[in-house]
């Protein structure tokens, strides 16, 4: 079931076209990623879905509502975590959550949310004294306190340490597993790979790829790279001639061979036949990271 649909969304700031005919859809109960380099239009897109901005053209529907016109009604059923917003420094964590709970007809239990997001010990701590990670978790808890059907998370792991990021990912999966649709804005590939069921890649205000993280990787081809340092002279043309090899690059003594299919088998067989001993052999499967850099032309 489609819960969010975006068709030909266009947004201009003055003469500058920020979104140029963006279309995608989000299904109920999935974690959908909006991926792209800074300035690609991710935040503007999500702000149009939240009713924080009015599109210049195109159709946006979230839970069947038009965010620009039925904003208040929509806000009762969605949760929003914004990039770069703060709370009052003297406001305590528990008070912030109680305050935002009072805005919703059927809020979540605040004590339970604090427990879940690791803030139970900070209930009486003032916002100004929280660490970056604690602030971030509080903002996610605020987005969830209204028991939303859709939650928008914009750069959710900003300020979290690696451990905190992984814990946050687990919690976001729990949120999805409880039936909430999650729209995640991120410029971090590992986050999208780890979390998203599907993602769209935005670049220069257009969707340049859409699908599961695996689809996105596959769409860009050349999934495997073998790199090594030959200890004896090596004829690179020999490797380039192999059937599944697409590209051979030699830089500073390191040879990098990339291609699809049995690249690894062919390369190692060739090296063995030539009696060439290699050092520092590494085999790397392409990740979304590589796919992303290729898709967006390397501005990441």
């Amino acid at each position: 079931m489609t819960i969010i649909s975006v068709e030909d969304l266009t947004k201009r700031y003055g003469d500058r076209t920020v979104l140029d005919g963006v279309s995608f859809s989000v299904r109920q109960g999935e974690i959908f990623g909006l991926l792209g380099p800074n300035g690609a239009g991710k935040t503007t897109t999500v702000e149009c879905l939240e009713g924080m901005r009015t599109p210049d053209a195109g159709t946006v529907r979230v839970l069947g509502l038009d965010p620009a016109r039925q904003t208040r009604r929509l806000r009762r059923s969605v949760g929003i975590q914004l990039q770069e917003s703060q709370l009052q420094d003297a406001l305590r964590v528990g008070e912030a959550l109680e305050l935002y709970a009072s805005f919703h007809p059927r809020p979540r239990d605040t004590g339970e949310l604090l427990e879940q997001w690791g803030l139970a010990g900070q209930r009486r701590t003032r916002f100004g004294r929280l660490s970056g990670g604690q602030k971030q978790r509080l903002f996610i808890a605020l987005a969830l306190v209204g028991d939303p059907e859709v939650v928008f998370l914009d750069e959710l792991t900003t300020g979290l340490d690696p451990q905190g990021r992984r814990e946050t990912w687990d919690l976001v999966r729990d949120v999805r597993d409880s039936g909430v649709t999650v729209v995640l804005v991120s410029h971090l590939m590992d986050e999208v790979t780890a979390l998203c069921d599907r993602a769209a890649v935005l670049d220069g205000g257009r969707i340049v790829a859409e699908g599961t993280p695996a689809d996105l990787v596959a769409a860009t081809g050349t999934p495997v790279t073998v790199s090594f340092r030959p200890t004896a002279p090596l004829d690179l043309d020999l490797l380039a001639a192999l059937p599944s090899v697409e590209r051979v690059v030699s830089t500073g003594g390191t040879v990098e061979v990339s291609g699809a299919g049995p690249v690894v088998d062919e390369v190692t067989a060739t090296l063995a036949r030539g009696g060439i001993v290699v050092a520092g052999l590494r085999i790397r499967e392409r990740t979304l990271d590589d796919a992303y850099v290729r898709i967006t032309g390397g501005d990441a």
Binding site: R72, R75, I80, L82, S85, Q86, L87, F103
Partner: peptide, 12 residues
């Protein structure tokens, strides 16, 4: 600080 913006993202 974005306090007003955060509030405007709520139903209120």
């Amino acid at each position: 600080r974005g306090v007003l913006r955060r509030l405007s993202a709520s139903p209120v």
